[in-house]
Structure formats: C-alpha cells, structure tokens
C-alpha cells in the first residue's frame, strides 16, 4: 500500500474514533465509570455497538499509524534534505506517544478490573520519574486524588492534539477520500459487530490481570526490573528512535537496536500471555 493511503486510513480511523467517542460521552459518567460503561454495554440501545466501533476504530488508528510511520522511514531522503523537514518529522512523530496514551487512557476509562489496575500502575510509574514525576502525574493521571477527571480530559485532549498534528501541521488540510473513509468505516463496523469490545466482570480476575495487549510486554518486565527501567526507560527507546530518526538514520546500529527491542518486547508479551 502506498504511503498516502495509510495516512488517509489513519485519519479516517481517528475521525471515526473521535465521533464514536463523543457519542459514548453522552452516556458515559466519569464519577461512575464502570457502572456507566457496563450500562452502555448491556442495557442502552446500540451501546455495545458504539463501544465496539469506538474500540476497534481506536485500535485501527494506532496500528495504521505505526504502519504509516514504518513506511515513511523507507523514503526518508524526501524528508531529510533540509533541517526544516527533519524538525517536521520529529514534531509529527509525537502523534505516536499521543496516540498510545489516548489508547491507554481508553482502557482506564472503562474502569473494569483491567482498567483500574492499568490506571494505578500508570500513576505509580509516572510518580517514579525523577524530578518531574509528580508534575507528570498531575498532568496525565492523578487517579488517586482526582478520580478519572484528568484521565478523561487527557483522553480527549490527546485525540485533539493528534488530529491537529496530523492534519493542520502535517498535511495542512484534512485528506480523507470518501472511498477510503467508507472502506475504513465498513471494516470497523464489521469487526465491531463480530467481536465486541471487551469488559471484565467484577471479580473476574482476582489473581491474574492481563493488561491491554500493547502493555503486556511492559507488564512482564515490571515483574523483573525496577519500575523506572521497565515502565519508563524501556518503552521510551523506540519512541525516541522514531522521533530522532532523521538524525540517526545513517547510523548502522539503529535497525538492529529496533529489532532487538522488538524481539525482547514480543518475547515478554508471549511470557505474560502464557501465564
């Protein structure tokens, strides 16, 4: 698939995610997160459908964004000729951590067993960051003092920032062809009807919680390493490589570094899955 196509699909998925997210927000209640999410899933007409659409369009956005970035690394000469292009790349690459955090906070918003644990772990990891820890926690999580208020705010704020970076800054306008939009919507709706968005029953996982799929590797590493190493420094490595790619791309070690990182991450993920 061509680069332009994956960019368009990512934009379409983000649009569907944001629209379905705003729809869910009409029945979602931050003060009663789990109860309202369960109500959406079980009793509110079309609730399960819209949760699924939101869930799958969000996953699609994240995955297609990674694919898009990966494809673009293949034609770096285009971006890297001038310093301005390199800086453009670094700024646009911020969509990756933003999208990841939007996705992550989505799981926390659901606030089932998995969501609660994810929120608590994220808060402790942020507080473990030297010097800036409590500021990062106040900005991004703060569940222990603020409930889900800030998580909800950041979920929407980061979506807006992704949208702004990807359209206003990156392509200067919204590029989504009608066809691409319809294909993406169809794929999301079919997946959503076939596979519901998950939600844990109360007391379902008292002895073993498996976190969101992209977090499983970190979860395993947290069993063996200091929180700051496993939860902050390790996941920052690929994000930093992507952000600094225009400056690092001529270094020979960079692809092996990414390959080693991915292998470790996949193995750790499989180990947690097998528990």
């Amino acid at each position: 698939m061509r680069i332009e196509k994956t960019g368009e699909i990512a934009t379409a998925a983000l649009l569907i995610s944001a629209l379905s997210g705003f729809l869910l927000a009409y029945q979602y209640e931050v003060a009663e997160p789990f109860i309202s999410a369960t109500a959406i899933e079980t009793v509110i007409p079309f609730g399960a459908f819209w949760r699924s659409v939101h869930f799958w369009s969000s996953q699609a956005f994240f995955l297609v964004l990674i694919l898009h970035i990966w494809q673009c690394t293949g034609s770096m000469d285009r971006f890297c000729r001038h310093r301005k292009g390199r800086i453009h790349w670094t700024v646009v690459s911020l969509t990756l951590p933003l999208a990841m955090y939007a996705l992550f906070t989505g799981y926390v918003l659901r606030f089932d067993g998995t969501g609660q644990a994810a929120g608590k772990i994220a808060e402790h990891l942020l507080l473990n960051v030297p010097i800036a820890g409590s500021m990062l926690d106040r900005m991004l999580m703060a569940t222990s003092t603020e409930g889900l208020n800030r998580v909800y705010t950041v979920h929407i704020l980061f979506t807006a920032l992704c949208w702004g970076l990807g359209t206003w800054y990156h392509t200067r306008r919204v590029i989504v062809g009608r066809k691409i939009f319809l294909y993406t919507l169809t794929a999301v709706v079919i997946t959503g009807v076939l596979i519901h968005a998950p939600i844990d029953l109360p007391g379902q996982n008292l002895h073993l919680i498996k976190g969101p799929w992209f977090f499983l590797g970190i979860q395993e590493l947290l069993r063996h390493m200091a929180p700051i190493t496993a939860g902050i420094i390790f996941p920052m490595i690929p994000l930093a490589i992507v952000a600094l790619f225009p400056w690092l791309r001529k270094r020979s070690g960079i692809y092996s570094a990414l390959a080693i990182w991915s292998s470790v991450y996949i193995i750790a993920t499989v180990v947690t899955l097998a528990r």
Partner: peptide, 20 residues
C-alpha cells in the same frame, strides 16, 4: 509495588496481587 488492589486468598490466608 505499583498500587494494584491485592486479593485476599481465604484458604491460604494470604494476599496476592493480580498485576505482578
């Protein structure tokens, strides 16, 4: 460790954390 809610195993009289 990282703040998850531990479960109480009534038969073994022990707490176990579901996260790690």
């Amino acid at each position: 460790h990282l703040g998850c809610t531990v479960s109480f195993d009534e038969t073994r009289k022990q707490f176990i954390c579901p996260c790690h």
